[in-house]
């Protein structure tokens, strides 16, 4: 029982660290893309240079409510499913 609690505790810590790393990375890549798109639009004349920051901030607000961001929660879900499948495969197959 203690072993299971230990696994759960340290697993949760490790997955939380991973969650923050993945979400930082995903945000950073998204912001970089938005910067690129903004610069393209400015070059095409579709966006005022002064509106560049607003364009990026709006894009980040869209990202914050997007499905893509919620998918990062899979960091918690996938290992739990993997462990369940593994327990079944090792012991009952």
């Amino acid at each position: 029982m203690i072993a299971l609690i230990r696994l759960g505790f340290f697993g949760l810590i490790a997955l939380t660290v991973l969650y923050f790393l993945v979400s930082w990375y995903s945000r950073s890549v998204r912001r970089e893309k938005l910067e690129g798109w903004a610069d393209e639009k400015i070059a095409e004349g579709a966006l005022e240079p002064a509106a560049r920051d607003t364009y990026i901030e709006e894009g980040m607000r869209d990202y914050d409510v997007s499905l893509r961001k919620k998918l990062i929660l899979g960091v918690y879900v996938v290992p739990i499913i993997a462990v369940t499948v593994l327990i079944y495969m090792t012991n009952f197959m």
């Binding site: 072993a3 299971l4 462990v83 593994l86 327990i87 090792t90 012991n91 009952f92």
Partner: peptide, 15 residues
Amino acid sequence: TGWGWPPYFKFDTAN
């Protein structure tokens, strides 16, 4: 191996 390392989650030793 139980819940420990390595993570095989083997409980069916007797089986």
